[in-house]
Amino acid sequence: MYKGYVVDHDLLKKDQHFILACTQCHQGNDKVLKKEEAHKDLIKRPSDNMANCVMCHKTVTEKYTKSLHYTSAGQRNGVMPRFSKEDLKKFDEKVFEKSCRSCHASCGDCHVKSPAVSGISTGLISGHKFVKKNEGKTCSSCHGGRVYPEYTGEYGGEPDVHYQKGMLCVDCHKKMEFHGDGKAYSSKNMVKDRPSCNNCHKPGSEKNPAAKTSHQTHTGKVTCYGCHSSGEYRQCYSCHSATGSKAKPGFILGLNPRDKKTLTTLRLIPTKKSTFYKAGIKMENFDALPNYWDSAVHNIKKRTDRTRSCDSCHVAKAGFLNKEMVIKEGGSTANEGLIYNIKPIKK
């Protein structure tokens, strides 16, 4: 028997959720002893039905149902400019609801049992305790492909300096980001009050004069990530084609596709025109979006190759997106618009 499911008496006394009977959330039948009968109509994930949580947690649950963690709307709206009306209808029916939406998080995914990713869950977070937070067992599951292992250094690079200082997700990403503020945003980029380096690292407060000068010189031209990403982070190739996904480390600098003027770290989103052919989606406007997107990489270091030497960018152009580097087969023509030709420093 899997002991993780045993709810002991100590836990029953400590956690006021257990004022309720098991059946109140899980249904089934607690009047019988035979497992088959007791588990008839059992609901394994009670919080998939928000009505169970809203009874006591009305405000937060109502806000949460509009949050991006719950709606997954960012995944739909991000790719939407590529679709005709007809394409969008098919996407909503055949792709978004059946695939993307399966990633939405229920209350229980973060507070009771680690979310299942590709069908695999690490189980209850702490017995059946309702926990406030446990980033290593919750955030790390859904964001375990790229962000979390980059942050801890387990992807193969250096751990993020904030992890070295003992910080976990919730130290920067506040509660509002998880639960939402009650508005239904179309993308995370619309959300105000997201973490910003400047919230803690005030411009002009640098102790090192060289750092102060460098920050002043690059303000508005390069994001913090551009210089302070420690190096390679995970780039995925071929995820959205039939050949199977491949991931390998890479460091890419290019223009932010959202403003086309700020240099930043880019991550490849390997969608091809043919990605949704099986669903009958043609993506005739495929080239409306590039394949490279600005990425808030989580491998920040105080010193990097770029902070140690101006030549890393201005002479060697290390990591800069160029015509040879952009994905060839099936890539968007918009990719080349992100190439930035950096100039040597005038001395």
């Binding site: 290593g136 801890t152 387990e154 751990p159 070295q164 976990l168």
Partner: peptide, 23 residues
């Protein structure tokens, strides 16, 4: 790891995750 340290550590111990020492 930070997560393990936060779950319970020797009183007074500072956390400097192994990944800070070798890359």
């Amino acid at each position: 790891k930070v997560e393990d340290y936060k779950a319970g550590h020797i009183p007074g111990a500072v956390n400097v995750f192994y990944g800070s020492w070798a890359i």
